[in-house]
Design a protein around this nucleic acid. Sequence first.
DNA 1: TCACCGAGTTTGTTTTCCAAACCCACTAGG
DNA 2: CCTAGTGGGTTTGGAAAACAAACTCGGTGA
Lengths: 153, 153
Amino acid sequence: MKDARPCSIADTLALVGEKYSLLVLREVSLGATRFDQLVRNIGAPRDVLTARLKRLVDAGVLEKVEYSDRPKRYEYRPTRAGLELEPVLHTLMAWGDRHLQEGGFRPMVLEHTCGHELVPQVVCRECGEVVEHGDLTAHPQTPGWTATGPAVA
Amino acid sequence: MKDARPCSIADTLALVGEKYSLLVLREVSLGATRFDQLVRNIGAPRDVLTARLKRLVDAGVLEKVEYSDRPKRYEYRPTRAGLELEPVLHTLMAWGDRHLQEGGFRPMVLEHTCGHELVPQVVCRECGEVVEHGDLTAHPQTPGWTATGPAVA
DNA sequence: TCACCGAGTTTGTTTTCCAAACCCACTAGG
DNA sequence: CCTAGTGGGTTTGGAAAACAAACTCGGTGA
C-alpha cells in the first residue's frame, strides 16, 4: 500500500478496516463489552480478537475499563470517537438490508426515538438534501493528484 | 466466524469488508475504472486486486465492461448497488476528517451541488433528525439472540 | 478437593498477502 | 522486420496473518 492516493477513507480503514474490528464496535455499541461475549457474538479467534482490541484501544476508539479487581477483569467500552463510528455501521446495515436480505429477513431492528424503525440516510449537513452520486464533485488538494489518479504520471 | 450474531452489517462486510474492496469502490466512484489505475491509486498487489474485483463483480457491485476489443480490454464500473455503497465511504471519510487529519490536512474535498463542501451526516429517514447513540433501541428478531448476546447460553 | 469461570496466551497448521518477475495481445516507431 | 511500450492480468516463492484447539492463571462456589 505504498504511493497510494492520500485519503481519509483509507486512513480510517487502516484503523478500523481489519477483519472483525467494525463488528467489535457493533457489539460494544449494543452493550456487549466483555471478551468472552465478543468472542461468542462475533465468532472471531481469541488471539485475533486480542490483537484487534489492543489496536482499537491504542487508536482511542475503545477504552479498557476494570470492572472487577480480584480477579482483575476488564471490559471494553466505546469512547466518544468510537461511538462516532456508528454512522458507518448504520450505512453498512442499511445497504445490507436493502441488497442482501432476500425475503426481508432482518436479524435486528434499531428503533429511533421518533418511534419508527431506523432507516439511516446520509444527507449534506449544509442543505439537508440526501446525497446522490451525481451531486458531488471531487476537488483534490494534493499536488500531483487528480480525481482519477496521479496528474504527473 | 461460526455461530456469530446474524447481522446485515456482518453480511455486508463479508462482501465488501476485505482489504482494498472499499478503496476499489472509492476509485470507481471517482472515475478510475481500469486495472492499472486501481493498482496505482490504491497501492494493492495485482493478484489481490484481481481477486477483489472478481468478488465484487460476482456480488453485483461492479460490472466488467469491455471498452476495446483487439486488444480485449475491460474496465470496472460501479453498478447501482455499488453506487449505493457511497454512504459508507462518506461516513468513513467524515470520521477520518474529524479524528485523524491533525492540522486540518485534507487530501480531497467533495463539493455538493448546494455549493458547499460535503459534510455527510446520518439522519433518520422517518423524522429527519440526526441519529445519536442514545436515541436507539435494539430489537432482536432472531430467536435465541438479545441485544447483547445469545439468550439461551 | 474438585469443577468452573473469565480473560486471555501458546502451539502448530492452513490461508492470505506481497513484491517481483513473467506472459500475452496488440500498437507505434525506426 | 525488429524492438520498445502498454494494458491487463498470472505465476512464483517467501513472509505474515488467521485459525482451532489446547493450555494458563487467578479466583469462586459446592
